[in-house]
């Protein structure tokens, strides 16, 4: 028992620290992106300390002011400070990126590992369901789910979690099929370890690098989908601040006051780019098939 566990552990050579060190040493873009993400997260947490304004209080005398020293990114149609609203909006965007990615990765990994390990009808049912979910253009599936559930932040979480699990399930299943044939799994089975224990002790831990990469690359997708849903008015509802919603609200003033849309739109762009680079960098380090290159 002890030896099989050691074998399966030897197969996982990456510790958090070694991965981060290599990431910073080998991939400058990923390192910069990591710093940008931390900065955004800190800004989201400490939003009230970073601005003298309130995100919802309207000051109609100051409506549609261009960017200035007092209002860094200008003010919107109700006289609210754009920078402040963006700080609070980053809470929505970051949460919407991270939480649903966690849930969909958890669902996808569990279903994928089950399908791959047990095979048979269970495999067939799970994978056909994944095929069906993947057949939908993702935006339209998200729209139907938002229709079903209604708007609001929590329902956006739920929708994004239900849209993105299928591709993860496919990839983890393929990984499980390979791991199932490895010696440490076979020897564990030979000494009578029960299947659920093999899955949680030996197979899932070895999928962790893949799961981390999928998770990081899932985040920008979720952020983009949320901003698109909110842009269509189907996602987070006003007066809450979300970057997509801010662009949507600013659209009618876009020609005269472009800053209403440009700054939140660019914020989406920067955070998406950062997660993208980080995911790519992590994949180069964690994916053994890519490591040779």
């Amino acid at each position: 028992m002890k030896s099989t566990r050691a074998l399966s552990r030897a197969n996982r050579e990456n510790t958090v620290r070694s991965v981060l060190t290599r990431l910073f040493r080998e991939n400058r873009m990923a390192a910069v992106s990591f710093a940008v993400i931390i900065l955004f997260i800190l800004a989201a947490i400490f939003a009230p300390l970073l601005t003298p304004y309130s995100w919802e209080e309207m000051e109609l005398i100051h409506r549609l002011n261009p960017p200035s020293a007092a209002h860094l990114f200008g003010t919107d149609e109700a006289g609210r400070d754009i920078f402040t609203r963006m700080l609070y909006g980053s809470r929505v965007s970051l949460l919407v990126g991270i939480l649903p990615s966690m849930v969909s990765l958890a669902i996808g990994s569990l279903l994928g590992v089950t399908a791959g390990y047990y095979g048979g009808w269970l495999d067939a049912v799970i994978m056909r369901l994944a095929d069906i979910v993947l057949a939908f253009p993702s935006m339209l599936l998200a729209m139907v789910l938002m229709y079903m559930l209604g708007g609001g932040l929590f329902n956006v979480f739920l929708t994004l979690s239900l849209v993105n699990w299928a591709s993860a399930a496919r990839i983890i299943r393929a990984e499980t099929l390979q791991l199932k044939e490895r010696e440490f799994v076979e020897s564990a089975r030979a000494i009578g370890v029960k299947s659920p224990k093999i899955i949680f002790r030996h197979i899932l831990p070895n999928c962790v690098p893949t799961i981390i990469v999928l998770f990081t690359l899932n985040i920008p997708d979720s952020i983009l989908t949320e901003s698109s849903l909110s842009f269509l008015g189907l996602g987070v509802q006003p007066p809450a601040a979300s970057w997509g919603l801010m662009v949507n609200a600013g659209r009618q003033f876009f020609y005269t006051s472009p800053w209403l849309c440009l700054f939140p739109g660019m914020a989406v762009m920067i955070i998406v780019l950062a997660f993208h680079f980080l995911g790519d960098g992590l994949r180069d380090i964690l994916d053994p098939r890519r490591r040779k290159q």
Partner: peptide, 21 residues
Amino acid sequence: LLGLSMPVFLIAMVLQYVFAY
């Protein structure tokens, strides 16, 4: 990279602003 990361609505609005408006 700009292409990968820009949300569709932002590109659409910027194009509209520059080339049409």
